[in-house]
Design a binder for these strands. Structure first.
Lengths: 253, 253
DNA sequence: GCAAAAGTTTGATCAGGATCAAACCTCGAG
DNA sequence: CTCGAGGTTTGATCCTGATCAAACTTTTGC
């Protein structure tokens, strides 16, 4: 977050209008172009984390930003009642290290082995101030992040367990799709309880939802971390709550 | 959203690192400084909407951005099953008009009489390209919006009705606080069902939650749209789920 | 000011998911 | 290979909030 003026935090107006930069129709799939990447490489160092290793904790002094190279990371907040709320799952090429007032706003843990570039905040900041292109990319990424978060909120607002899980799978599928090509198999690097904490339900309910989708022939899982969607149309109907109950509702559990 | 490159939408990495611009410690409570505001006034025109009037619909061609002057607006998405999911409530000084691929991403309806500045997208875009200060403010506002959305997601992830409503009231209180001064009375311009669609529960449940908070002496409502918090400590405990049940749990309903 | 419409409260019932509990896999460490 | 810990499935029960329904209140338009 750009700095921490209390006034912005407290009463800064929201912005909801950002389709203004739309320049040409060039593609910018990466946060950084090869060239920009190279320029940043100077200040970056590679770091590595084991599965389950905590990268940083909420409230800790934010000294660095990470650019994930391989692996998957979860960002989460720990509520006072010690329950976790997962804010996002981060994948390769994602930038992580959101901070406010110089402190991280959430905790970060690797859920698979992770390698990442570590970019010291100070060095990165000076790069940004004289690199308009980079700044533009940042705006793009902020917008992307905003979309993702709105989508997350949308998932959380659903009341049906099947609906939540289906939407979550849609999300993963899109994240894993390469260049718009639909993938055949969805990979679930995170645990059932991670999923539950992301979509807002208990881990048992997540498990049951998977079984529910399986017994209806909508998904088929190879193992606990790999599944494919076998009945697209009803899957989509469940995901966006278009009454699929006529067909699937008959199956009791 | 800045433009609509399919590739960004599909696989653009998320950014989570934006505390990089933190300059001095000046305050920027408004999106626009008086001067910037004046520069924009040239291209703006004033528009007025009645209570309940729809400002625009999701998917409509996005020709303009609105800067709310007075009144309150709700932004929402209509799910295929025709249920509404409220994305945000917008207040004076908020900018609205988020679009993607030149089309609005959600619908907008005035929930009180509203006056606003209408800024044509085309004119605004050209302003922005040669106004770095404005661009910086946009980044700030995007961050603010992101924070708000994350907070919304956090509310939606709570399972207790009282907790959701209490968090929602906290949110309103902060939005209405002027310069960090805590207000005495919270104003609820939106209907119970609007609240329900925002926090993810039925309107009846919202009503019961208000009653629940009232019978426990935690809030006191002057009328349906004005209330004050009478027991701060238990209110806060309920809002962040710190077990307040010892004290309040005894009250059955 | 009245009637209709919209919004709110309250009640009763019901269902879906939370929770508690136990058995079962899976993977990694020794 | 075996053991153990962490993760997952499954089961049984309970409870909260959804849903249906009806009375009541407030607002709005004539």
């Amino acid at each position: 977050m750009p700095k921490a003026r209390a006034s912005i935090d407290a009463d800064g107006p929201a912005i909801r209008a950002v389709d203004l930069w739309a320049p040409s129709s060039e593609k910018t799939p990466q946060l950084l172009s090869a060239e920009e990447r190279a320029r940043l490489a100077v200040i970056a160092s590679i770091v590595r984390f084991n599965k389950g290793e905590k990268i940083y904790g909420e409230g800790q002094r934010a000294h660095a930003v990470f650019n994930i190279v391989t692996g998957v990371v979860k960002a989460y907040k720990t509520a006072p009642d010690s329950s976790e709320h997962i804010t996002a799952f981060l994948f390769p090429d994602d930038l992580v290290g959101l901070s406010e007032e110089g402190r991280y706003t959430n905790s970060l843990t690797a859920i698979t082995p992770v390698t990442a570039y570590l970019l010291p905040v100070s060095a990165l900041r000076s790069r940004l101030s004289n690199d308009a292109g980079l700044e533009f990319h940042v705006i793009c990424k902020l917008c992307h992040e905003l979309r993702q978060t709105q989508r997350h909120a949308f998932i959380l607002s659903r009341r049906q367990a099947l609906s939540k899980v289906a939407m979550f799978l849609q999300l993963l599928e899109q994240l894993q799709a390469v260049r718009g090509e639909r993938i055949t198999e969805i990979y679930l690097p995170m645990s059932r309880s991670d999923i539950g904490e992301y979509v807002g339900m208990s881990l048992e309910a997540v498990s049951r939802a998977f079984r529910g989708l399986t017994t209806r022939g909508i998904i088929k899982s190879r193992d606990r971390r790999h599944l494919k969607i076998t009945d697209r149309s009803t899957f989509d109907k469940i995901a966006d709550n278009t009454n699929a109950s006529s067909a699937a509702g008959s199956v009791t559990q």
